[in-house]
Simulated scan of single mutants.
Amino acid sequence: MLIRNCTITVAFVFILAGCSAQTVWVKPGAGTEEFNQAKYACLQQGQQPYSIAVANRYGGSASGGMTTNPALYSACMEAGGWALIDNAQATSPEYAAAIKQINDDNRALCRKPEYYPYYAWAPCAARDATAGQLSDRSHITAAEKTIFEKLTTELNDLNARVIAAHRQYNAKSGEALARNIEQARATADILRQEYLAGRITRGDYNRRRRDIVIGLDAEAIRILQGT
């Protein structure tokens, strides 16, 4: 969980693959850069003109400008998948550092040349699957199996580190977050075996991978909000 600029991000890596505020914005899997982009866009959308006029027996004055409508800003953030949660979830700097390193390692993994054959048809982030990737009717090749299995091993290691960080540093919600990932991993393992066996297409794999991550994120938000 990355704590910075009053936002928390929860890292979920899949082969599917100090702030004084009382509340913070959270989006599973998002990083600080994505939060900053969302914040800027929603501030722009939430802008409204205002005008103030004052008059008394000595005369009058008027002024105007632009201000942010909090309701519009919140609606924009929520539409982008962000949720406002209790800042009590934001815990130690060690927690933040651990999750940041995992996020960085995952991004580096997506850029490894040896895994280009996989990421040529499967997005690094499951939610980013394109229409073409979701409709791909091709199946796994013999040459791809070795690459796929090696990448799976590396991503499983990252997942294990995320689970350990939640349990070590988040006394309030860490266990629930860890179990959420473990359950999703079990479903992802079934999906991986089906793809390796050639029973489903790349498009089927990408679609179900995306659905698993969407469900994982939704449950994480529920856990963090305490609902």
Rank of each mutant, 00 (worst) to 15 (best):
T153G: 09
R192L: 11
G203D: 01
W25P: 01
C76L: 03
C6N: 15
Q101V: 02
P123C: 03
N87F: 02
A129V: 09
L177N: 07
G226C: 08
F14Y: 04
V10T: 13
T9P: 00
K112D: 14
I99V: 05
R127M: 09
D136V: 10
S61Y: 10
Q22N: 08
R179F: 09
G132A: 04
T201L: 06
Q225D: 01
A55L: 13
I102K: 01
D157K: 08
I190D: 07
A164W: 01
A188M: 06
R179S: 09
I52C: 06
Y95G: 00
N156W: 01
A176L: 14
G31T: 12
A122M: 03
Q101A: 07
R107S: 11
C76S: 13
A142E: 15
Q133E: 11
G60H: 15
G132D: 09
A38Q: 05
Y40N: 12
R185L: 08
A142I: 12
E114V: 12
N170V: 06
T153E: 07
L224T: 01
R137N: 13
G81P: 14
Q101H: 05
C19K: 04
I200H: 01
T23S: 14
I181E: 14
R107M: 13
T187N: 06
F14D: 06
L43F: 07
A176Q: 14
Y95L: 02
I99A: 15
G31P: 08
R4V: 11
L151V: 02
R210P: 00
R208H: 08
A55H: 14
A38Y: 04
R208I: 08
Y58M: 13
A160N: 12
G215T: 07
G198W: 05
D104R: 09
D86A: 11
A160E: 14
I190A: 07
N5K: 08
Y195A: 09
A11F: 10
Q183N: 08
R161Y: 03
M66N: 12
G226T: 10
V10I: 10
L177D: 07
I214C: 00
G80N: 15
E144W: 00
L72S: 15
Q45A: 13
M66Q: 15
S63L: 11
Q193T: 14
T146V: 11
G65V: 14
L196E: 08
N159F: 07
G31M: 11
N5C: 03
Y58L: 15
L191D: 01
L158S: 04
Q45C: 03
K112P: 01
I214Y: 05
C124Q: 01
D204Y: 05
S20R: 09
L2E: 10
F14M: 02
D217M: 02
Y119V: 07
A186T: 10
G29D: 03
G174W: 07
T130Y: 06
V26W: 01
I214Q: 11
I181C: 02
I15E: 06
N5F: 04
G46A: 14
Y73Q: 12
A75V: 04
N206M: 05
S92V: 04
N156K: 10
Y50I: 06
L84W: 00
R209E: 10
